[in-house]
Computed example of a mutant assay.
Amino acid sequence: MSTSRGPSVRQRRLAAELRRLRERRGLTGDEVAERLAWSTAKVSRIENARTGAKIGDVRRLLELYEVDGPRHDDLISLAHDAAQRGWWEEYR
């Protein structure tokens, strides 16, 4: 049995939400990377849940995408929760 962990449901949800927000702003991954001085690969890894998104990175993305208010707070909360595994993960 493999000991590596894939992305959690929360990580996948956060990744999908961040991609959706980027697309609504009409930005490409390359444009986001350029504006934030990141690599395009970093944007791709975050949006595909191949790496956990750091809270600071999520804040920068939300600022770029002009997300504020309750939606901003919900996504930051999701980012905090994304690193945690659900109780069911132990029972694979």
Rank of each mutant, 00 (worst) to 15 (best):
E63N: 05
L62I: 06
S44C: 04
V58K: 08
R59K: 15
L78C: 00
E89L: 15
D30C: 02
R50T: 06
A16E: 02
G6Y: 04
L75N: 05
R10S: 02
W38M: 05
V58L: 09
E17I: 01
E66L: 08
L36N: 02
I46A: 12
G6K: 06
R10W: 03
M1I: 06
L21K: 04
I46F: 13
D30P: 03
K54N: 12
V9C: 12
W38S: 01
T40A: 02
R12H: 01
W88C: 14
R60W: 10
S8N: 10
D57I: 08
E63I: 08
A15S: 02
E31T: 06
W87C: 11
E90G: 14
G56F: 13
V32E: 05
L61Y: 06
R10H: 05
A16P: 01
M1F: 09
R71K: 07
V9L: 13
T28M: 07
A15Y: 02
V9N: 10
S77M: 11
D73F: 12
R25D: 03
R85V: 15
L14T: 03
K54D: 12
D30W: 03
R22L: 03
Y91V: 14
D81A: 15
R60L: 11
V43T: 09
A33Y: 04
S77F: 13
V9F: 14
A16R: 05
R60H: 10
D81N: 14
T3P: 07
L14Q: 00
G6F: 09
D74P: 03
L75A: 05
R24F: 10
Y65Q: 07
N48T: 00
T28S: 03
E31P: 00
E66W: 11
S77I: 01
R60P: 03
E34W: 03
P70L: 10
A16I: 06
H80E: 14
E90K: 14
G6E: 02
S77G: 11
E34Q: 05
R5I: 12
Q11I: 09
V9W: 10
L78T: 05
G69A: 06
R24G: 00
V9H: 10
R10Y: 07
R59N: 13
R35T: 00
D73M: 11
E90V: 15
S39E: 03
E47G: 04
V43M: 09
D81W: 14
V32C: 02
A53F: 11
L64I: 07
L36R: 01
A49R: 04
K42R: 13
Y91S: 14
R10F: 04
T28L: 01
Y91C: 14
L27G: 03
R5V: 09
G69S: 08
G29C: 01
D30L: 05
A82F: 10
R13M: 04
D57W: 09
W38L: 07
D81H: 14
G56P: 11
A37K: 08
A82E: 07
Q84F: 15
L64R: 03
G29H: 04
R50D: 00
G52Q: 10
L14Y: 00
R85W: 14
K42T: 07
R20F: 06
S4F: 09
R60M: 12
R20S: 05
P70S: 08
